[in-house]
């Protein structure tokens, strides 16, 4: 049995070795060619959008390593992104969970046809399960059901959640989750309201 597993592993290895050159080859596209294509696709967009097309260091590193950065790169990403987190000046992390639930439900904002004056959402349910009552939830991120309850509503976890929502990459380098505070998509109060959704004992997340 054990030898079978071993030979299976060896076979897998052989397959991996064979497929490696193809991966290396596709990685060889000249970055200038990629950026030229990006300009061709989005170069006509309004000036305010142009800075969003240019990649920052973190986006560059995560693209290059296809979201699996080596340890040193991962460390550099979390160190850089941690510095970008702005904690609330009043030292309070908990807002209103009812407002948080609305923000979690709404995916409005950030698209090029969206009205910039309308209130934006965090689109949390697109990827996460939160309230047990909401059956229409995505599975790209982990379930957050009973998030606060499981953590016994501890202060350090409340702060960690604020940081995670503000800048996911400070916690998990190359996370799929948008850096919602860093990109200024959500403001401080909205993030506080989401933290309350996770940590208020009365919130449907913990009920």
């Amino acid at each position: 049995m054990r030898t079978l597993i071993h030979s299976a592993a060896a076979a897998l290895f052989a397959v991996a070795a064979f497929t490696l050159p193809a991966v290396a080859q596709s990685a060889k596209v000249d970055p200038a060619v990629v950026e030229k294509a990006v300009t061709g696709m989005f170069g006509h967009a309004p000036a305010a959008w142009q800075e969003k097309i240019v990649q920052d260091e973190t986006q560059k590193a995560c693209s290059l390593h296809r979201n699996a950065p080596p340890a040193d790169v991962a460390k550099a990403i979390s160190a850089r992104e941690e510095k970008n987190v702005v904690l609330p000046a009043d030292g309070k992390f908990l807002g209103d969970w009812k407002s948080g639930e609305k923000i979690a439900q709404s995916g409005y904002g950030g698209r090029h046809t969206d009205d910039p004056k309308r209130e934006v959402g965090g689109n949390c349910y697109a990827c996460h399960q939160l309230s047990k009552k909401e059956l229409s939830f995505g599975t790209m991120g982990p379930s957050l059901v009973e998030y606060g309850k499981i953590r016994k509503y501890k202060d350090e976890d409340v702060k960690a959640a604020f940081i995670k929502i503000y800048n996911a990459q400070a916690v998990f380098p190359c996370s799929n989750m948008p850096r919602l505070g860093h990109s200024k998509h959500l403001n401080e109060q909205q993030i506080k309201d989401l933290v309350a959704l996770l940590f208020d004992p009365e919130s449907p997340v913990n009920k």
Partner: peptide
Amino acid sequence: EMAALGEALFYRRGGQWDFSCATC
């Protein structure tokens, strides 16, 4: 060349939400 460029674009993260095609 176009297939390789397409693959690179597929993995290129960017925009306000850091998304690429590969995200989903």
